[in-house]
Simulated scan of single mutants.
Amino acid sequence: MPERNIEFGKYGARGFKGHEAVARQLDDLAGYIATPVTARRGLLARLHYLTRSDHARAAARAAGLTVTDRTLRAWLAGTRAPSKRNLERIEQAYRTVRRENVARYLLARLNREGRGTRVEIHPLNQSQVDRPRQRVVEFRTLNVRRWDRIVAAWAAGDDQELDDAWVDQVVDLGSQWGQYEYVTNVGFAA
């Protein structure tokens, strides 16, 4: 695909892929539990979220939390503590289930009945690049009207699809869209 960067950072530019910034922003909008899973309060909050209904339990099992109901009850009662590996599984299952639960809500908020959401794209950081090699890249805004592919890829955790969906939106910036493949921040609100 034209305009893709092959050797990003070769001369000292810093930033990260635009789709990663979009995923971070969507994660912020999802409103995860702030207390870490290693704290008792955070563990209990995640376990209650994952076990509050039969549907939530099934989603947690599908997301990789495959322990017995007896083990879950022991964790909730505090008689046993999950291992480090199980804590990671609990966190991953919680994030996966939370993404699936809020995806439809976020999609409706971001699409705004076809009006879309304004996105601010902050360009990559070129402060470490020698002056003759710096490009003129400026702050840009873009109104994204179709968030369906972006939110679906984010909810599924599919980075490649999220990248493709984001690039499909960024090409609306014009012939220089490749300059915004790497950014310092992408901001929007729902």
Rank of each mutant, 00 (worst) to 15 (best):
A21T: 11
L47D: 03
D28I: 02
G31D: 13
L47E: 03
G31A: 11
I33D: 14
L50A: 01
R46L: 02
Q25L: 10
A34K: 15
H48V: 05
Y32R: 05
D27G: 08
R40S: 03
A34V: 15
D28C: 03
A34E: 15
A30H: 09
I33Y: 13
L50P: 02
H48L: 09
L43F: 01
A34N: 14
L43Q: 09
Q25K: 15
R41E: 15
D28V: 02
G31Y: 10
A45K: 14
A23V: 07
L26F: 00
G42Y: 01
L50N: 04
R24T: 12
R40W: 01
Q25T: 15
A39H: 14
A23H: 07
R46E: 05
R24K: 13
Q25W: 04
Y32D: 04
D27Y: 03
R24H: 10
G31S: 12
L29N: 06
R40G: 00
T35N: 08
A34G: 14
A34C: 10
R24L: 10
L43A: 02
A45D: 15
R46K: 11
R41F: 07
R41Q: 15
V22P: 05
Y49R: 08
T38Y: 00
R41Y: 10
G42K: 05
P36G: 09
D27H: 05
G31F: 09
R46Y: 02
V22N: 11
V37D: 09
D28L: 11
Y49I: 00
L50G: 02
G42M: 01
R41A: 14
L47N: 03
Y32L: 02
A39Q: 14
A23M: 06
T35V: 14
A23W: 03
L47I: 01
R24V: 08
R24W: 07
A34H: 14
Q25M: 14
R40P: 00
A34W: 13
A39Y: 13
D28W: 04
G42Q: 04
A23P: 08
A23C: 06
V22R: 12
L43S: 05
D28F: 03
A21Q: 11
A21M: 11
G31P: 09
Q25S: 12
R46W: 01
A23D: 09
H48D: 14
T35H: 12
G31T: 12
V37C: 13
R24Y: 08
L26P: 03
G31Q: 12
L26A: 02
A21V: 08
H48E: 13
A30G: 10
A30Y: 08
A21D: 07
D28T: 10
P36K: 11
P36V: 06
A30F: 07
R41C: 05
A39C: 07
Y32C: 00
T38K: 09
L47Y: 01
H48F: 06
I33M: 09
A34Q: 15
H48S: 08
L29E: 12
A21K: 14
L50F: 00
P36D: 13
H48W: 06
R40L: 00
A23K: 11
Q25I: 04
L29P: 02
A34S: 15
L29D: 05
Q25H: 11
R46T: 04
L47K: 05
T38H: 02
A23N: 07
A34D: 15
H48P: 00
A30M: 09
L44W: 05
L50M: 01
I33S: 10
T35F: 05
D28E: 13
Y49F: 13
V37G: 07
